[in-house]
């Protein structure tokens, strides 16, 4: 009987822990999205995830445009120790990651090392285990002059960080990292793009296409209603979303061809992004304002 009562107490305790760790997972079950067609479907879907582009994806279009390196658009790595709250540290992890993704493209080795050092410090203060944060960065330092290895290691470090935080019930912290990276990427792209330069058309289009990712970013944040600081970014992003309503993306569905031998499906749709200069300038201004708020200490 005594053994039974002890077991019952222990099991009840574990049950409570299980409930808490499920909290964030279940919180998105009630999210509505414009892509959910009807209530019946919504009730069958147990979990909805939202992804935003990684800073690496965003930065690749910058390189193709032939833009020259501009160090002035980056966030100073020297201020890393001024960020003392967990949320700001997580935001800056994302911000510096975006800066490093940009720096990597132009093979600015010394600058990359500086950002690496700041990222390592942030991984340590956020309590990312060494083998998932700092150690991966030590590998990066050995491959610092190899652009392709840098790509792999940047993506591995961020994947490991995201995975570790979410596995340990810190999904809100992971969302701060993603927010920092996405806003910084948008900021960099909008600062360097010249609307009047035809060779920057791809960057301008990519900025316009963030219309989709912005909605996903807002949904990501809304999944953690209990985190008031995270929720404070919803309104500025909603303001930005209002401006993005002026961006018109004309989409024409095309054929879908599947090659089973290559395990490849190609979608031959066509989309035209229309973004007026005044809309671009508004996006640029708002992205800068949100970024200023993110990086202030």
């Amino acid at each position: 009987m005594k053994t039974f009562i002890i077991s019952l107490t222990f099991l009840s305790f574990l049950l409570l822990i299980g409930c808490n760790s499920q909290q964030n997972q279940l919180s998105t079950d009630t999210d509505t999205t414009s892509l959910v067609k009807d209530t019946v479907h919504a009730n069958r879907v147990k979990k909805i995830f939202y992804n935003v582009p990684s800073p690496i994806e965003m930065s690749s279009v910058i390189q193709r445009s032939g833009a020259v390196f501009r160090g002035d658009v980056l966030c100073s790595y020297k201020n890393v120790e001024k960020y003392t709250t967990p949320s700001k540290q997580a935001i800056m992890l994302g911000v510096y990651g975006a800066d490093l993704s940009y720096v990597r493209l132009f093979e600015q080795i010394q600058t990359a090392i500086n950002y690496l050092s700041s990222i390592k410090k942030l991984c340590d203060v956020i309590d990312i285990p060494q083998e998932q944060g700092s150690l991966a960065i030590q590998r990066m330092e050995k491959n610092i002059d190899n652009k392709d290895s840098l790509l792999q290691i940047i993506s591995e470090t961020y994947a490991a960080t995201d995975s570790y935080l979410k596995d340990n019930g810190r999904g809100n912290t992971a969302t701060f990292v993603i927010l920092g990276g996405w806003v910084e990427s948008l900021y960099i792209a909008s600062q360097i793009a010249d609307y009047n330069n035809p060779s920057n058309k791809e960057i301008i289009d990519r900025i316009g296409e963030q219309k989709y990712s912005l909605s996903n970013m807002i949904e990501l944040i809304k999944a953690y209603p209990e985190d008031k600081e995270l929720q404070s970014y919803v309104q500025p992003l909603e303001d930005l979303k209002k401006v993005y309503e002026e961006v018109n993306i004309e989409y024409v569905k095309g054929e879908v061809k599947t090659d089973p031998s290559k395990k490849l499906t190609t979608i031959y749709s066509v989309a035209k992004v229309e973004i007026k200069k005044e809309t671009f300038e508004k996006i640029k201004t708002l992205a800068k304002q949100i970024r200023i708020n993110l990086i202030k200490y």
Partner: peptide, 26 residues
């Protein structure tokens, strides 16, 4: 391929559905 770094993981039971909303770039 390079992993986009975002964990989309859930505990599911038979019959359960999960969805991921993602943007594919041109």
């Amino acid at each position: 391929f390079t992993y986009n770094g975002q964990l989309n993981m859930a505990v599911l039971n038979p019959g359960d559905i999960a969805e991921l909303i993602v943007t594919f770039y041109k």
